[in-house]
Amino acid sequence: MMLLLQAVGQNTLATIAGLGDFATFATRAIAATPATRQLGRRWIRAVHEQGVRCVPVVTIVGLFTGLVLGLQGYYVLTRFGSAGALGTFVSLTLTRELAPVLGALMIIGQAGSAIAAEIGIHRNSEQIDALTTMGIDPLGYLVTPRLLASLIVFPVLTVAFTLVGLAGGYLSGSALLGLDAGVYWSAVHSAVQYTDVRECLLKALIFGAIAIVICCHSGFTTHRRIGVSGSRAVSVSTTRGVVLASIATLAADYLITSFLV
């Protein structure tokens, strides 16, 4: 019994310490913004890493999501004689939920893992220590540009996901199953309101910042992985970064949705 209590207490303390550590990390990354030199060049690299390289995966996943939504939505809605609401269904599902969440998960999978691994290797080969001894803030150099990049990349890719998804819904619902294109698009137009777009972009911004900082933090703390070191520690950090970032994205999604709607 005592052991159980101790275990619970220890885990709670460790979780709180971890959260505090993470919060400090994020704050320092933001605070390092003005002092970081050549932020623009690093930012461009980061946008390339997170944004440009993720365009294929985001568009492909967006297209298939739209196709499936169109198919499933059409079959369900025709049962109620409401196939005309397909555009509403597809567009609102995409804008409010699927595009921000699936888009973020795709970017975490492709770019977040790469970031965690890269920073993990920086940590392992003392490159982070080297930056420190040169008087360069490693957070400013490694994390800040990526965090700032995520603030543009996630909204852009989320909107791209939405637009491609709408096209996918059109392809399966209209081109394949024969719903009138005008009915589909007019339902899309009338369904998506400014508030939906705002929710979509807000979610993308928050998911991006959280996910990218988690991945950076995970790589950054590679030397603190318990029981493993070297390349195993990098692999643990990468996995941990991706898993934590994905969970945090979904949890944040639930919170934002429940507060906004």
């Binding site: 080969s125 220590d129 040169m134 360069i136």
Partner: peptide
Amino acid sequence: GQRCSYLFQGNALFDSLTALENVALPLEQT
């Protein structure tokens, strides 16, 4: 960092930067 330097046992070179970029980095950043 401004007045001292540290030569690491494993060199701690920035592996994704070229030799020139490695040497230029401390000047660029500080």
